[in-house]
Structure formats: structure tokens, C-alpha cells
Amino acid sequence: MANTSDTILTVENMSVEFPTLSGVTTAVRDVSFTVGREKIGIIGESGSGKSTTGRAIMRLQPPQAIVKANRMQFEDIDLLTASEEEMRSIRGRRIAMILQDPKYSLNPVMTVGEQISETVILHERATSQEARSRTLAMLERVNIRDPERVFDLYPHEVSGGMGQRIMISMMLIAQPSLIIADEPTSALDVTVRQQVLSILDDLVVERNIGLIFISHDLNLVRSFCDRVIIMYAGRVVETIAAADLDQAQHPYTRGLLNALPSLDHPKDRLEVLRRDPAWLEN
């Protein structure tokens, strides 16, 4: 990879707050990170703010949420000041998102092919003829054997693994430079997961783009990503190269690693994570 170092996204001190009846809940607090042309994993338990972070980057947070940051720069765009119109031209075309369950994220009353074509028709004003041929090529690229047949299928007619590959092809047809994948394989079986990940891996390398991979699966992130951000209660507690995860310093990361049953280092009792209130400070 030639230009691994150049930064696609910079986030400095981002916070996401939700006003509620009983005061303001801070879901994400002072999160800073950069994404280059690499696979970066965000790990955390449910409620740690990892998905909220992903959504805030695309400005897809619920309307009542308040996003604050010192800086949110995506390539040449300042995400903090970009108008809604500018955002519409970024979403799907320059930053794409893959969600957990294709069953709920695909439109059930449109054929798969129409949905994929829609992206290029809207963003690049491609003719339907051209969109169709690009869609078919894209479906083939994600290892779908019979793209002509799959083009006319409805989402309920495809399996989970195929649905997720369709999602990936939909995200990549517009050639984004950043992909945010929110638990893309959690709903899939182990064998299918491997296929989907290797397609995603190949495409990220081939196109030299950035990937934010949100997951709760430590083993998966460790083996798939280049760098890992560990989140706890809305804060980034540690950022570490995936290969060095075993040498993580923060007690929370260590606790998570020790709580994991392992085939390679079996132990009789698993360590139970002790949460230290001090982690919530700083």
C-alpha cells in the first residue's frame, strides 16, 4: 500500500449528548481518533457508544442528539459545518455504512438490483442501462455466482450471507473512501462470516480505502483489523495495534481479554471484569 499514512478522517474531542427528562446523557465523551487507509476496529460492550460514534460521523444521529467536537474533518469536508445538502452527497457516495442485519436494512419491496443501482443513479446520474451493468459487475465482484438472477430477487429471497454481500456491493458501487461497518457479521454463521470478511478485506485493500469496523468480538477484531480502539462508557480507553492487543495496558482491555474463553489458553474459571469507577474519570 503506497499511502497508508494519509488521513481520511480526523475526529477531535467529539461528544454526543442526548437531552432527556432527567438531564443530559452523554453517550460519547471526548473521543478522538484518526482513520487512514487502514482497517480500524472499534470494540466495546453494548452501550459503550461505539455505534453512536459511527453514526455521528455520518451525521445520522437522532434529531434530538447534540454532537460537539473540536474538529471533524473528512478529506476536504468539515463535517461540523457541512450543510445537510452537502451531507447527502457524502453519505453513500464518499462515506458508506454497512449495518448488522441485511434483513432489516434492505428495502423489502424493491429488488436487490434496483436498490444497488439506485446509489449510482442518484449520486452519479448514471443511465439505468449503465447502472445495471455496473450493478451486475459489482454483484459478481462480491462472489455472487449468478448476478443476472440475483438482480431480480427481493431481499426475503436471499440468504443472510448473500444479503450481507449485497449490502457490501451497494456500499462499494459508488466508490466511497471510507466505510463504516457496524457489526457487519454478527448475524451470520461462522462459515459465511469468513467469506463476507474476506470480500470486505479484499475490497478495502484493492481500493486503498479506510474501514471503521465496529464490533464486540475481540477475536474477530484482533485478527481482522490493523488498529483497535477500545471504548468504555462513551470514552476511548485505549488505542492499540491489533497485533499488540495481548499487551494492552488498560485494566478494562485486560479484563475483557481475560474474560474470554479461549481454545488456545484454556482456564478453569473465567476472570470476571471488575469495573473501576476511576475509568469514568479523565
Partner: peptide, 13 residues
Amino acid sequence: ILMDGSRGYVSER
């Protein structure tokens, strides 16, 4: 296959 799967992702590359 199942065992490799629970260890995480195995890059073919």
C-alpha cells in the same frame, strides 16, 4: 472450519 471461525478471521491473503 468451525474452529478457525471461533479464533477470528483468517486472511487468505
